[in-house]
Amino acid sequence: MNIGEVLGELQQDFPQVTASKIRFLEEKGLVTPQRTAAGYRKYTDADVDRLRFILALQRDQYLPLKVIKDYLDAVDRGEHPESLPGGLTLSPRSVSDQLAQEIAGHIRPLTRAELQGISGAGGDLLDSLEQFGMIQADEDGRYGDHALKAARAAVVLSSHGLEPRHLRPFRAAADREIGLVEQATAAMATRRDAAARARVAEAAREISEACLGLHSALVGAAIADLDT
């Protein structure tokens, strides 16, 4: 397949993907298409499956490209890595569309009733989460994967007596983190082409991952002191 045919294969599931994004992934060493004698890229079905897998992990699990590349490099070397961050597992060398969807845990947008049923959150809890900016419906009144994760977390926290009003510091901390990401990527964001946007998004993921790691380390250290 040429790159236009690859886009045709991917855009139903990933409508935002562009030729520049695919070339960016090639530049980063995540996919290596064959070349014709004239230098044109030629993609196989396996390349498309690999791209679909990468894009699904980026979109649904928010994993940095470096983490995905390290995993795929290990697979390419014939190793059998057990899991990705977050406990995601897969069978090496088998990255089909169905498997990619299963691994990513991608869900279609949910109605409010579906969000309530799947997350276990009551209507009052969802109302409070919306009031405090923890979840937000799209223009069609549906909720994405991030809303589901937030609602599930809120259910657990509420069982320990922590109500949405107690969680406002998380919203404030997230907003501050977003500000740091925007500040760090401001220079890169001045360019408007698709490849530049892909670089900004990847840098944002790496910064966010580092911020989450730092937060986890600091909180983990404090909790460890409770055992001493």
Rank of each mutant, 00 (worst) to 15 (best):
E209Q: 12
G220E: 02
I103V: 15
Q34K: 13
R35A: 06
L157E: 05
R59L: 08
Q131K: 13
E206P: 06
I68H: 05
I103H: 04
S91M: 14
A137R: 01
G161M: 02
V156E: 12
R50Y: 08
V75E: 05
N2A: 08
Q58D: 02
A210Y: 07
L180Q: 13
L212H: 15
D140H: 08
G117K: 10
P92Y: 07
A203Y: 03
Q131Y: 10
G144A: 09
A196T: 09
L167A: 04
H166Q: 10
G144W: 02
T190F: 00
Y62G: 08
A100F: 05
R165P: 11
L212Q: 14
D145T: 11
Y40L: 08
A56D: 11
A151W: 00
L10F: 10
G123P: 07
H215W: 09
S128W: 03
E82F: 09
Q101M: 13
Y43K: 03
C211A: 15
Y62E: 11
L30V: 03
A172S: 12
K42D: 11
E177Q: 12
L57K: 00
I3V: 13
A222T: 11
A195T: 11
Q11N: 10
D145P: 04
E5M: 13
E206Q: 15
R59Q: 14
I107F: 07
V48D: 07
R191P: 04
M134Y: 01
D70L: 03
E79M: 07
N2W: 07
G123R: 04
M188H: 09
K42R: 14
M188V: 06
V6D: 01
R197M: 14
P15D: 01
Q136M: 05
D45V: 08
